[in-house]
Design a binder for these strands. Sequence first.
DNA 1: TCCGCACCTTGACGCAGATCAACATGAGGG
DNA 2: CCCTCATGTTGATCTGCGTCAAGGTGCGGA
Lengths: 251, 251
Amino acid sequence: MSITLKQPEGATPRDCGECPIRHRAVCARCEADELEALDRIKYYRSFEAGRTVIWAGDRMDFVGSVVSGIATLTQTMEDGRRQMVGLLLPSDFVGRPGREAAAYDVVATTDMVMCCFRKAPFEEMMLRTPHISQRLLEMTLDELDAAREWMLVLGRKTAREKIASLLSIIARRDATLKLGSLQGPIVFDLPLTREAMADYLGLTLETVSRQISALRKDGVISLEGKRHVTIPDFHRLLEEAADDGDGGLLT
Amino acid sequence: MSITLKQPEGATPRDCGECPIRHRAVCARCEADELEALDRIKYYRSFEAGRTVIWAGDRMDFVGSVVSGIATLTQTMEDGRRQMVGLLLPSDFVGRPGREAAAYDVVATTDMVMCCFRKAPFEEMMLRTPHISQRLLEMTLDELDAAREWMLVLGRKTAREKIASLLSIIARRDATLKLGSLQGPIVFDLPLTREAMADYLGLTLETVSRQISALRKDGVISLEGKRHVTIPDFHRLLEEAADDGDGGLLT
DNA sequence: TCCGCACCTTGACGCAGATCAACATGAGGG
DNA sequence: CCCTCATGTTGATCTGCGTCAAGGTGCGGA
């Protein structure tokens, strides 16, 4: 009998002109001729939810952008303890120019499409194309800020605040992506399992579950099923996250 | 009576040629003419130990490099909880091109000298000088890696492992800086107070003190006074840090 | 020389979150 | 339709680290 592989189709764009991340990815500042040069070294790859894109330590002969879907960057210790160190959303860059091996496990948590560039030609092109390296610098600085903000969450926040922080990040992203407002209620699906949330937050999955239940009981969020979340009052959530300055309403 | 301000002198270089960080800072790849252009927009500033360089949220009209001494990047919550998000060593870059206000408190923990560039001309120069933005990209990617490694420490390591991790980082840096080997015993002075270590590690200063005492009792380290540390066996320390892969012996 | 202050250490105790364990829920497959 | 397995919830108990408290140490200044 023939097996029908669940093909994560859909988001693969026909060409850069109709690419959903055209104006946010590494290529954001490229001119037509530069896009054409990139086009010659690029290819698309699709991953099913749960598939590992690369294992830490493996040789990596490409870099690329997440086009659609979500991936995670995870570090694992010898005894099995795991810490997520990055959440890759559409337009985020994967891989590091000038490095042979992957530093972290990259796993697709939803069906995902990547736009990959062969590493050697990409590196060479970076030297000749300031538009690419300038944009990559900007994106890397943003990621560094995000990592540092996450250090505060990991080092100093309580379990409840950690959950609220994660929810507010996802809510904010979803609101801006769907052009929703942060005034009314926000509705979205959690893209992560409880275990993945625990890996992100430096908690156990039991604690994650308990704190989500507590936030639900206290009316900060409401749940339909296990993943579908409604935030009735975003400012209340920010208070629970002990998040001052409320992030300027944009990411 | 005349007050003699304790002038942190010494390390201010006469010109770029004899600058101690010439080959590791943002300017590492610059040619003579590029250095000359940088020279026109640069000035040195000295800070005594304990002085705040900038407060988070303050307008920042310069960027720059640490020439000598050590500074910390710290984030503070409204209720006073603090998390250090970066340790700035000689050659590290301070500030972010394209940003108006400082994102974190920057504090000199030892006497420190900075080589500052006026922000607007520096940003303009970056556009024309790929050598600068390429080097800055490389440094930012390194910092991102360091931040992510620190996320694992904050999220998943025990107090004892956290202390051992911090000591191994300082030991490794010191060994490479002084061209020492990692085979024999390593000797250095802690550049941080117990409180600063606690802020870095997401602990309280009492726990830091207790764990240092425990490591001393177990022979992993030995102490003369409160700051002068000897590591008799670096590999033992790495084991205590639960640090696999031992970092390849270089930074 | 002594004082004051910043920095550090150590002890007693409590609690947030980990651990261990049992059970619930729901989707996919035979 | 039921079984299985992945995922999630909830309870009981344990423990690592925080909190509160009481000194100790050593340097700079009067």
